[in-house]
Design a protein around this nucleic acid. Sequence first.
DNA 1: CATGAATGAGCTTTCATTCAT
DNA 2: GATGAATGAAAGCTCATTCAT
Lengths: 217, 217, 217, 217
Amino acid sequence: MQTRARRERRKEARPGELLSAALDLFVEKGYAATRVEEVAQRAGVSKGTLFLYFPSKEELFKAVVRENLSGRFAEWSQEFESYQGSTEDLVRYCMNSWWDRVGSTKASGIPKLMMGEAGNFPELAKFYQEEVIQPGNDLIKRILQRGVALGEFRQLDETYGVYTILAPMLFLAMWKHSPGSCGDPGIALDPRKYIDSQLQTILRGLCIQGNSARKGL
Amino acid sequence: MQTRARRERRKEARPGELLSAALDLFVEKGYAATRVEEVAQRAGVSKGTLFLYFPSKEELFKAVVRENLSGRFAEWSQEFESYQGSTEDLVRYCMNSWWDRVGSTKASGIPKLMMGEAGNFPELAKFYQEEVIQPGNDLIKRILQRGVALGEFRQLDETYGVYTILAPMLFLAMWKHSPGSCGDPGIALDPRKYIDSQLQTILRGLCIQGNSARKGL
Amino acid sequence: MQTRARRERRKEARPGELLSAALDLFVEKGYAATRVEEVAQRAGVSKGTLFLYFPSKEELFKAVVRENLSGRFAEWSQEFESYQGSTEDLVRYCMNSWWDRVGSTKASGIPKLMMGEAGNFPELAKFYQEEVIQPGNDLIKRILQRGVALGEFRQLDETYGVYTILAPMLFLAMWKHSPGSCGDPGIALDPRKYIDSQLQTILRGLCIQGNSARKGL
Amino acid sequence: MQTRARRERRKEARPGELLSAALDLFVEKGYAATRVEEVAQRAGVSKGTLFLYFPSKEELFKAVVRENLSGRFAEWSQEFESYQGSTEDLVRYCMNSWWDRVGSTKASGIPKLMMGEAGNFPELAKFYQEEVIQPGNDLIKRILQRGVALGEFRQLDETYGVYTILAPMLFLAMWKHSPGSCGDPGIALDPRKYIDSQLQTILRGLCIQGNSARKGL
DNA sequence: CATGAATGAGCTTTCATTCAT
DNA sequence: GATGAATGAAAGCTCATTCAT
């Protein structure tokens, strides 16, 4: 049963191994430039095996996105929904936990990749819009609405406000994955400091004066 | 001969027409996804003719970069070298004229494109690093050094300082060329306002207190 | 054990279920376009199991042919050998019983299929020639020889005579399985009438005048 | 200019050479089993060149059909329209000229091929139905209508009547291209005799007694 | 100079067959 | 016996580059 078990384990691990290899390569080379054979190789299987688990390159990519981005919105949504503290702290928590769970991982390469290739793959662009951008925006919008409803945040244009939060995170993701930043250690942004600095500005802009304890910021 | 003259003119215009078509397509589709045949078509010549002027797709791209980015550093360098006003104003002039001459044109798509594809084309990455990033950095660095030397700017880590200026411009370029920003009019950044706002922060951070007239900022 | 028994039964039924599924699909899609996995699926077993019973796709096909065509020649041969009536009636019986046992069943799709694909699978062509065409021709030839020997039929070129009988049956089989005939109900041949009509002509051509009772024809 | 001319000639000959090679191979192996590379090879060009003239295997096949079957209906239609003799002779002329121009050529392999593969390629089936079957049926139908209108032919169900003419030609085409008939010289139908024999039966069935001179038939 | 026909390496996807369990 | 995960040889199609004209 030893071997049986080993095989079973491998079988169940396959999709994960393939998704991991695919994430690596998609982030490293982009969607179009990644060859499925290379994904298979890196996962230690043959070309044919990959197609046993994912019917096409496109579906493989979608699965990678679901695994690393869109599949997590449900959990995050719940987490934020049941958050007890101030909205100001929720925004802080939101950005920092985004860094921990996405920004600091390879998954942060996906937004960068999509920015570059969405135009060439309309089907993927549509998928990404529906499964990532839309839910992500909604999530942030709900946080802002919570702040406004609780009297913590000033009235604001919600759509615009969403990008106030999103843009700094996107930029950080892009920066991390642009070749220039890697080679040059002098510019390597310290993500925590960057996020803190952004948060200062953002929260100062969002919160109603005096309504929130901002001593120390 | 009328026709002779027209032909001559066309002949001399060829490279320019090709470069213009190539810029359009490279920015629209990226480097890899752009087919040389389409470039030729858009320029109104045959595929063979394109290779008459540019020995390879790579050289075509390099020429596009030279035409639109690196080729202008000499002029800019001189311009900034002979600038008479305060360094603070020079920085303002620098960022605004960058927007006028690059940011607002299709050329601003090139940095975005390179960010996405540099990894797949090391030769191009090297070229871009040498012909654009390095000179650009140097230019900015010299401006900062001028500010420090004249006692306008505080002492600072030059490398890091360069990115203080560069990053906002890069982000603006990326934003402009990302599909998301186009569709959503709510987020469409007003470039001038964006630049002004960035300049406020940047200059406040760079200038020595009281040494510079910052009334109204 | 109930289950044991059921399992045994299933086990013994396996080859039959596979052959039935294979016949369906071969007839529907042709030999090359039929995927063994689909055959297995339709038979309710896994791909591996199919290869347990039939060592290759080719052998599977041969088994289908044996089951539905060549395997029956022995019985038919005996049946015709011991036929008591006139050869004219034997021919009638022959064609009608061919329709009942082959023509009206899916098996009639095999000759059509072979006509289309024999050229691409020489091994199968050889097998089919030896196991179906040759025995079939011999059977018909012996019937014709019986007619001649008994003074019922005129002298005739036997080889040519064989096709006088075979051709109308083949055409009927082809017609039945050609997509054109299915959709167009106006042309849907009534097989019985078709066979009767063909028999009239054929027998009139074969029988010696006045030697055979053809009143009513 | 010698070479120029030679090249021009080759360029103009290419599509024809490719269509000819394609016809050969499609007829020999069927649509699915024919590899485009082999078509190119037989035409003496590379794989890529084939795709220069035909955007896909499917379009290549359609072009073959147009070149050899559907493209000729216009001419035939006119020819039959302006026919001066009796409709009985027109039918004779029709079948014999079909043999000369299609039946005796490789083109007669196309109907056989379609019969076998139409089910697997719906797009092609639709195309063939529209461009070959429909026009062909219409042509025959108009001939029959002419016979009826001129009082030469009896009243008849037109749709059924069409197949009275079509079926024997199809069978001849199938027969010619079935491997069985080639190898066995004993059965090799003499097409002229076959057609004559069929015409006798058909015309006897269609013509009104005594209305047409049928001495000698 | 300008052309565009020709090339062929390279990519995604399919499927008969094997074999460890 | 039965399974189904794994394989890898094809096959259709693309596109940068060459070169005869």
